[in-house]
Every structure is written in structure tokens, then in C-alpha cells.
Computed example of a mutant assay.
Amino acid sequence: MAEGASEGQEKTEDPTQKRLEKAKEDGQVASSKELFVFSTLLVGLLLYIGLMPLMPSLLQEWSSLFSFAGQKGVMDEIYRNLGASFQFMFWKSVIFAIPLLIIVILTQMGMSGAINWSSSALAFKPNRINPLSGIKRMFSVKALVEMLKAIGKVTLLIGTALLVFMATIDALFTTPSTHLMGGLSRMGDVFLLLIIVFLLVLAAISVFDVIWSHYQHNEQLRMTLQEVKDESKQTEGSPEVKAKIRRMQMTAVSRAKERKAAMEAVPTATAIITNPTHFAVALKYEVGTEGAPMILAMGRGNQAQEIIEIGKDAGVTIFRNELLARALYFAGQIGDEIPGPLYTAVAAVLAFIYRLNNDEQVDPPDVDLPEDMRFDENGKVIS
């Protein structure tokens, strides 16, 4: 559904962190061939310069492999020297291979931020052997850019090589008293200069290629606005659901605050109406004031027990009447005046409590409620 919704939309949004991580898992990371060429050539040059003092001994060891005494048979010596030459080439190659391998790994880490091993990148992809897909890749913008990069690189390297040779040709062929070893030494100097110039050119090309690779990688991973929204829904949930959860959380917090404030107001109540324990409603009324009694707190079950305990500790009079307690609980609201149909019943109860608190001997009143104010424990009107 998400794919269909995003069809026809332009990919204008930068890739999200989840999209970047998914691409990295699939082996799709920014990479620069030119940076690899520059770094390996630089390390190779440094190794060459560092191993220059060892060259005479290496050449001597190499030349010894072509010396045959013939005392134990020429063929035996040939086979022995051949095996020794393979070992010589192998271990000397390792000296160059290990540093180059390390610099390749470090170069990729510099490009992608970490070593990335992806098994999915090694998986078989049928489109790679599809001729139509191959032709499409050959004539793509990426292929055109790669071709232009290759032409530009070759042009720059050939041009710089010609400039170096033109600048040093006089020193190579016109120096007085030129001899073989002196000529070879000067050619070595020119070769070293040429490598250094190549490195400078490749460094400039690498900077361009790294910038282009990161730009191209980012463009390939760009997302449509719908894809960003769908991903947000998958990771964080639907905005509608999140809004509903926030509303429920805010309501719960608000109710908790109201309940706390109501419980703190219970000690100031005039009376607590119970039935006798399942429901409890705390009322407040001051004689001579305008308006009806106000509901300070109410609850059922454990909350009702808490209201009763707080009221007892504060010396609040508790009046037990099952129907009145239910009517106040189901028809009233905390912080509001009691419902109008209950004025008469509550007034009778408060008058009884007032006289009781004044040490008068009075009988409990007969509380009569309207038919529509008689509730059962579930809040349904008793018929």
C-alpha cells in the first residue's frame, strides 16, 4: 500500500536514519574508487621509500637464486632455487600486501564511518545478469559520469606526465659526462617526481570523487514524502493513535490531580454519604451561604474506603444511605453542586447532621428520592 501511495511522487526528502542503516545492511554505502587508488599509491610510495635502504640486500638475495654451482646436479639446483624464488616473492609481496590491505580498510571506514560487512551484498541478484538491465546501466547517467571521470583522469595524468618529462628532459640527456649509473639515478629521481605529481593529481581527483560519491549515494536513497510518513508510522505508530494515547495520558494525569486534590479536601467536608462501604461521597455546605452543597470527593471500592478513613480521622460525620450514595455518585460531578433532584434529600440529611453535631436527639430522616435517581451498583436506573 505504501509503494502504491508513493508512486508518481518526487523523491524530495533526505533519507532517514533508518533508511541509511537499511542501505548499509544491504551493502549499499558510499565508495570512491579514486580515493582507493590515491591511498594505495601513497602507501606504496612510502613503502618504496622506506625499503630503499634494503634494496641492495634484496637484489643480492634475488641474484643468488640464479647462481648454480652444479655440484649436486643442475636440475636439482634449478628446482631448489625455483622453490626458493617462490618463497622469496611471496614473503616480499606480503610486506607490501598487508599495509595496502590495512589502508584499503581504513579508507572505506573513512568513507562509510565503519567497517561494513553485508551478507546480502553477496547474495545472487538476477537483475545483474539481465541483458536489458545491463544495457540500461551502460547508458545511465552514472555510467556517463564514470566515463567522463575516467577520461578526465587519464587526460590529467598524461598531461602532468608530459609536463614533468618536458621539464626534466634536459637534465636527463644533456648533462655533461653522463654515464650509465648516473643516468639511471636521474631516471629514478624523475620517476619519484612523477609519482609525487601523480599523487597530487589523484588527491584532487579523489576530493571531487568523494564529494560526488556521497552526493550520488544520498540521491539514490532519497525518499518521497509519503515514504517518510509511512516509515514514521511503522517506527513510531500512527499520528492518530499517538494523539489518542497522548489524550488518554493527559486525561489520566488530570484525573490523578483531581483525585489528589479531592482527597486533600475530604477533611473539610460537612458529611460523607456512604452505602455503607462500596460508595462514598464527601459533601460540603456552610449554613447561611448561597447555593447548594458541593461535592468535594467521591469514589467506589478502595477509593470509597480511603475517603471514609480520611473522614473518620478528620472527625467528619458519616451518614449511611445506599440509594442516596449511589445517586450522588452516578449523577454528580466532583467540584460541582449536587444535582437539583437531590436537593430535598440532601437537605434533610444535612439538617439531621447539623442537629446531631449540636448534641440534639433526633431520629435519622426518611430519604425519599425521585424514581429517575434510584440506581443499582452498575449505575442503571432501578425500575
Rank of each mutant, 00 (worst) to 15 (best):
S63R: 03
M248A: 12
S85M: 09
N321R: 05
V43H: 00
S383K: 03
G182P: 04
V316N: 03
A69C: 06
K92F: 05
V316Q: 02
G8A: 15
K284F: 07
T270M: 12
V94N: 11
P53I: 01
T270A: 09
A327Q: 02
L20S: 07
E231Y: 10
S177A: 15
R247M: 14
E377W: 00
E290D: 12
D376F: 03
P276H: 09
T274R: 02
L225P: 05
L199W: 00
A348Q: 13
A347T: 14
L356M: 15
D376P: 00
V74E: 01
L350N: 04
Y215Q: 08
I129H: 03
V190Q: 01
R80W: 13
V154D: 11
R355K: 15
L199H: 01
E34Q: 12
M250S: 08
F90D: 12
A297C: 05
I195V: 07
A271I: 01
M250L: 13
V104L: 08
M52R: 08
A150W: 13
A271Q: 05
Q87S: 10
D313Y: 00
L51H: 04
R300D: 01
D366G: 11
I273W: 01
G8Y: 10
G44M: 04
E21D: 12
L20W: 04
A256G: 08
E360S: 10
I245M: 14
T224D: 08
G152C: 10
A265T: 06
I151H: 14
K229M: 15
K380W: 03
R19K: 14
A331D: 07
I318C: 03
W212G: 10
M250I: 13
K153P: 08
F86G: 09
S206E: 02
F208V: 15
S254P: 07
I205C: 07
S6A: 11
F38A: 04
I98M: 11
Q108P: 02
A269K: 02
P365H: 08
T277M: 06
L342E: 03
L35I: 12
F90Y: 15
A243S: 14
G70S: 06
G332Q: 02
M250D: 04
G182Y: 03
E219D: 08
F88M: 07
T251I: 15
A2R: 12
S93E: 06
A167T: 04
K153A: 11
K284N: 06
Q303A: 06
V43M: 04
G291T: 11
A123V: 12
F352P: 01
F139P: 07
R186K: 06
L122H: 06
T160V: 06
R222Y: 01
V145H: 09
S67W: 11
V141L: 14
A262Y: 04
A97N: 10
